[in-house]
Amino acid sequence: MEQERPGQLGHRPAEVVELPASTAPPVDVALEELEFVYAYIFARVGNRADAEDLTQQVALKAIPRLREGASQGAIRSYLFATARSALASFWSARFGLPEEELREDTWVDSNQPEPAGESVERVERILSQLPSNYRKLLELRFLRGYSLKEVAAELGTTLGGIKVMQLRALRAAARVAGNG
């Protein structure tokens, strides 16, 4: 995994890397790149069903480029630009807001795949800035797979109380992400 210095997290300039021409069949090249696209999308929508739908949309749009015999670097840039656009449409359709309002400015996006684990580090950084009860709730619920009932038992509160606390914790996490 690529090593990052703390000061560079989330602020790394996009690198333009022209990859050598691949001798692999175009479909294999596309699949290799789409694996990165899938990870990129999954990290933003959080569920497999939507991640697969969006990745498929991206793949469909890439087919003409593949037929043109574009280089792997060009295909990658195109796929990630398309993925960002698909994500903007995804959130826009759900919230009924213009896409410009939903660009995820707080999360640095580039035309390159994220190093494995970068999304995890980013989330950990947000969690680390939350009050301990919020952090614990979100860790148990999202990272350790506890049901809400189990989280309530662990934190010694009621189910209704834990739902409200989850709402407040996620709002607090969104504020931290927005300030990051």
């Binding site: 899938y38 990870a39 999954f42 990290a43 933003r44 929508v45 959080g46 569920n47 497999r48 069903a49 939507d50 991640a51 739908d53 959130w91 759900r94 919230f95 009924g96 807001l97 939903l102 995820e104 999360w107 494995a116 684990g117 999304s119 995890v120 980013r122 989330v123 947000i126 979100l138 999202f142 990272l143 797979g145 709402l167 996620l170 709002r171 996490a173 969104a174 504020r175 992400a177 927005g178």
Partner: peptide, 29 residues
């Protein structure tokens, strides 16, 4: 699938951060 609707727009940042949290639960997908 995420079934958010325009009535959820007020909490969109919280929903997006929830999606981010859910997106890292299995490590690198």
């Amino acid at each position: 699938h995420l079934k958010a609707t325009p009535s959820d727009a007020a909490d969109r940042e919280a929903i997006q951060v929830a999606a981010r949290l859910a997106g890292v639960r299995d490590g690198y997908p």
